[in-house]
Design a protein around this nucleic acid. Structure first.
Lengths: 194, 194
DNA sequence: GTCTATAACTTGATAGAC
DNA sequence: GTCTATCAAGTTATAGAC
């Protein structure tokens, strides 16, 4: 019999909180809701965590770090910009499908971070966007990409994959690979036939 | 001297509320915040509006109706599916740029609608998605569009324009026409050179 | 229509017994 | 670590004087 990894109460709290924030939104989720989900009284939560916002901070910065680590890995690859952009799109798809709950909270609830966390978060996001944009610029310079506005390309790509955390791979007869192929095809070559 | 249209207090309340909801989110916005913005005491607000949610309902259903009216207009046009999809993308751009505040609240805060409004809203959204998807299907059947997964194409298009309400036309040296051209080029033909 | 006053309730967090 | 009890502040909304 395989050893079952015991989930700590703290971990359980974080996981249930993420679900709760996803369902009701951060500011509509109460510590009472959360306590009930993990079978504790409200006051007992504070033996495990510092407070409500600590959970939001963990979710937001963990995901921000995933994206920044991902782009750092891509930048050092000896590949043409077009391949780097494809890798980044795959990164977004992977992160969205791997932990949809966490990524939903990251996407939609970061603005409820208090200072100085909010500013830190926005700096990380800006950093990511700048570095993503630089790869696009290089691709245009090398003639791989059409001469389009960098900002438009950047945000079109970044937001175009922001529905994937709603995607349930099990209810669609489309493998993750096919999903990836479709998205890359649209962004690289468009939906129109040649 | 041109006649200045007088803004009713009710209208002022709705406009300031939209801004407030955009800034702080619906559930973090209080009637006290709103009262202060329009120089009234909280209780006086209730002489003009029924309550907090009435404002959210107005914003959500007004925008939902804009989109549904738009797609109805497009459907009756005698144009190939590819042109209809382009029209719809232009519709999204137009709505996003015309009233960014309202569309932000529509995009991000609809889930705080209470029943039965929430269900009504979701039905309208589903209706829009189905009709949008049918045009894509037709385009594929006629050979105008590549044989891609309808759902992937649908949501990629719908979400890819969901950053436009942050776009400030004045701080970018790109006209709205060029913005439109860039977005249509990406979605129709992709970013990659041929 | 606007105000003061207040009802009725929910919020995040803490004190201190066990 | 968990509990009961409670606090201080915030919430939407209403009653009733002017």
């Amino acid at each position: 019999m395989p050893t079952k990894t015991t989930k700590s109460k703290k971990q359980e709290i974080f996981e249930e909180a993420a679900k709760l924030f996803q369902e009701k939104g951060y500011s509509s989720s109460s510590m009472r809701d959360l306590a009930q989900k993990v079978n504790l009284k409200v006051s007992s939560l504070y033996s495990h965590i510092g407070g409500k916002e600590e959970i939001l901070q963990k979710i937001c910065f963990e995901n921000a770090n995933h994206f920044l680590e991902g782009i750092t890995q891509v930048e050092i690859l000896k590949l043409p910009p077009s391949e780097k952009i494809k890798q980044l799109i795959r990164l977004h798809i992977k992160i969205a499908l791997e932990d949809p709950t966490s990524i939903t909270v990251f996407n939609d609830e970061w603005r409820y971070l208090s200072e100085p966390y909010l500013s830190d978060f926005l700096k990380m996001r800006k950093d990511y966007e700048v570095r993503f944009g630089e790869i696009i610029q290089k691709g245009i310079d090398l003639g791989e990409f059409k001469k389009l506005d960098i900002t438009v390309v950047l945000f079109t790509i970044l937001t175009s994959v922001r529905w994937l955390h709603y995607w349930n791979p099990e209810t669609h007869n489309l493998t993750v690979e096919d999903l990836e192929k479709n998205i890359l095809a649209i962004l690289m070559s468009g939906i129109h036939t040649d």
